[in-house]
Design a protein around this nucleic acid. Structure first.
Length: 688
RNA sequence: AGCGGGAUAGGAUAGCCAGGAGAUUCCGGCGGGCUCAUAACCCGCAGACCGGUAGUUCAAAUCUACCUCCCGCUACCA
């Protein structure tokens, strides 16, 4: 690593990517915040002065569009989500020192200061660009205010991205038949003056910066393509009412990605003002010497490793020490989809009554931070039952119970050297976890210690011993429990707190630093309680049924199948309506070119190595064809033979996973709802 | 298409940056033990030649090149 180990003399600031005030939070989003919270707590355990801040991202086109759709003001719309987020995070023990939002005065002022400073430094220039316009309403239509037809694939698309078809990014002016989302009027393109940041000037600086940057590998490497290639200047204004005004320009607002990261600074400033600069000095961290750690979803790496450091450098601020970019959370192996309601929502998790530490532990220790992690109730129960109930909970409970019954607390004896060393090793592992930006490693430390404790108590069998030998063993075990409480605090704060009070300790485990792990435990404590409850198989089945029912209900509502990424900072996508019917008409001749036949499935088997491909043999009357279809996971393959289907017979042959596909089985939607016939047309019948 | 991340026992994961003893841990399987503990815990056994190919090296899961497959990013979406 290119920086000094933690703790350093400087204050640190840990930030979490701003959630976009546009939807509800699910357990995928929460991963980044739990990781950030755990990391900030771990720094504090090391004795590092740390501020942990974030805030809601209130501006931008999606908020404006969705507010308009709901018929409320953007302010009201965004604030509602902001308040919900501010309430939800603490419920998952994500305790920001300050959680603000980008619309607050502190951020507005600071943002305008930044922009003036950049302008004074000659980093900004004006340039004319093409912008979509609604001529009837005389209103600009940035970004998502426009929809039309994708010039590449012909699908219905948003102005900025072909979201339903090929997924390509679209430049302004590229989309065909542009119309206004607001009025449905045809849109035209006009020339407008916009402000640009001379990003290209920062190329050399950024090249050095990226080599110094710590954090996860993806954050260091992904921006290289840009930084080591050719940087384009960055348009930092929008024609929009909703946003922070560009200084001295009435009809331009700043692009959200300018004011959003400045909220990191603004939020720190608010914290600083609240605790007084003696407690924490925001200017020291951001402008002088400080450890800036950004924790984000991996979908916004470029913003934090290219745009943002350039802005900071441009105004003469500190640069980030590290960027930790988290992987996504998948649900049973597939991405969350908010529009299909294929998600475990934050509120639903809480309503099930599970301790938030279970989720926190699961999501931080399941894989490395930058790797995607799969969420399933089975796996959740498995890890809770094995690692938390069986290993950690059990060791603490049996130790404290034994100690309480026989000694009314901690036996009067010295800790053995072996145990002291083992705890010192654990503390070292913990520190390595912090320096290595691995919340996973941090979270594993207490469980590994408990595992060691179980081996230790089992190996010494204190229930067969008499004092003083018995007392020594139990004394050691109690010490281990105390160390576990301290070391578990970052990832499992509420569990640590419960343990702390079971140990009869005074004060808060949240304020304890690592050396407390070796301090003598209190002489007396009450009978402990079990830390975690097992989740039985019936409960898992119930949870899965609820989830399936929830997804099924959503698909009946006709929601589309836009899958959005989990774990990203952006909150829920708006529920988009079904794509509009195609405008472009085709002739009857074009239809006649399609040879569509009734077929009957004779055989269906999965293709090895493919997740959802199945090899089918389909009787088309005149001959039997081999067809590969992406339906393996969506249908019981055993039930398919005998099913009448509709087959496009003259599609060109294709080879998938080494299996030739000679025809195409027609199906509806993402769930591959197979088309069949209503009466009893025989195989081979032509569809016309 | 380019770039980034990933591919490790039946399943899930660590190790890779700083190459080195027949590769970590969890679940599952098999066989023991214990009874303080939430039928929890402990010990032992079986099981992977670390996606493929070719290199570098005394030595490669780890470094290099190419290839295959998954996921993501690609700048006026946040």
């Amino acid at each position: 690593m290119s920086h000094e180990s933690f703790p350093t003399e400087n204050p640190a600031v840990v930030t979490c990517g701003l959630p976009y005030a546009n939807g509800d939070l699910h357990v995928g989003h929460l991963r980044t915040y739990v990781g950030g919270d755990a990391y900030a707590r771990a720094l504090e355990k090391l004795g590092q002065a740390t501020a942990f801040v974030s805030g809601s991202d209130m501006h931008g086109t999606p908020v404006a569009v969705n507010a308009w759709r709901e018929g409320v003001s953007p302010e009201e719309f965004a604030l509602r989500h902001h308040e919900k987020y501010a309430e939800t995070f603490p419920e998952f023990d994500v305790e920001f020192d300050n959680y603000g939002h980008t619309r607050e005065e502190t951020n507005v002022e600071l943002t305008q200061d930044f922009v003036r400073e950049l302008d004074d430094g000659g980093h900004i220039y004006e340039k004319e660009i093409e912008v979509a316009w609604d001529p009837e309403e005389d209103q600009p239509l940035p970004d998502r205010y426009v929809e039309g037809t994708c010039p590449y694939c012909g699908e219905h698309a948003r102005g900025d991205e072909c979201d339903e078809g090929c997924g390509r990014h679209l430049e302004p002016g590229e989309i065909e038949n542009p119309t206004s989302v607001i009025t449905g009027n045809p849109a035209e393109y006009r020339t407008r003056e916009h402000e640009f940041l001379r990003l290209s000037e920062f190329q050399d600086y950024l090249g050095e910066f990226i080599d110094r940057l710590d954090g996860t590998a993806n954050a260091r490497n992904q921006p290289r393509e840009w930084i080591e290639g050719e940087l384009q200047d960055w348009c930092i204004t929008r024609d929009l009412d909703w946003g922070i005004e560009y200084p001295d320009e009435e009809d331009l607002v700043l692009y959200v990605w300018v004011d959003a990261p400045i909220e990191y600074v603004a939020s720190t400033k608010q914290y600083s003002e609240r605790v007084d600069t003696d407690g924490y000095d925001w200017e020291e961290v951001w402008q002088d010497e400080g450890e800036i750690v950004h924790i984000i979803g991996r979908d916004i790496i470029q913003h934090h490793t290219v745009f943002w450091p350039a802005v900071l450098h441009g105004v003469g601020y500190n640069e980030p020490r590290s960027v930790m970019a988290s992987g996504f959370v998948n649900l049973d192996g597939k991405g969350f989809s908010t529009s299909r309601n294929r998600a475990v929502w934050a509120d639903d998790y809480l309503d099930e009554g599970f301790d938030t530490d279970l989720y926190r532990y699961y999501v931080t220790t399941g894989t490395g931070f930058q790797q995607d992690v799969d969420f399933s109730w089975e796996r959740f129960a498995e890890r809770v039952n094995g690692e938390l109930v069986g290993t950690l909970g059990n060791f603490c409970y049996r130790s404290l119970l034994f100690a309480h019954r026989n000694y009314d607390g901690t036996p009067d004896s010295e800790v053995s050297a072996e145990i002291e060393e083992r705890i010192e090793d654990a503390i070292e592992d913990f520190g390595d976890g912090v320096d290595g930006y691995s919340v996973r490693a941090i979270g594993q430390v207490p469980v590994e210690l408990a595992q060691f404790g179980n081996e230790y108590i089992q190996g010494h069998e204190p229930w067969k011993l008499d004092d003083p030998e018995r007392g020594t063993v139990i004394r050691d075990c109690v010490q281990l429990v105390k160390a576990i409480a301290v070391l578990a605090e970052p990832v499992m704060p509420s569990t640590a707190e419960r343990l702390w009070s079971q140990l009869g300790e005074s004060g808060s485990v949240h304020d304890a630093t690592l050396d407390a792990a070796l301090d003598a435990p209190s002489a007396n404590f009450d009978a402990p309680e079990e830390l975690f409850e097992k989740i039985d198989d019936d409960r898992v089945a119930e949870l899965n049924e609820e989830l399936e029912a929830q997804i099924a209900a959503a698909s009946e509502d006709g929601a589309d199948d836009t899958a959005d990424e989990a774990g990203s900072d952006d909150a829920a996508e708006p529920a988009v309506d079904l794509p509009a019917l195609a405008d472009e008409r085709i002739g009857f001749e074009a239809f006649q070119d399609l040879d569509i036949r009734v077929g009957e499935i004779e055989l269906a088997e999965g293709i090895e190595g493919a997740d959802d491909l199945a090899r089918l043999e389909v009787d088309l009357g005149v001959e039997t064809r081999q067809v590969v279809a992406g339906i393996k996971q969506l249908h019981g393959l055993d039930e398919l033979p005998g099913t009448r289907v509709v087959v496009l017979a003259n599609i060109e042959k294709n080879e998938l996973f080494g299996v030739e596909s000679n025809g195409m089985v027609l199906a509806a939607g993402e769930d591959a709802d197979l088309l069949t016939t209503h009466a009893d047309s025989v195989p081979g019948t032509k569809i016309r």
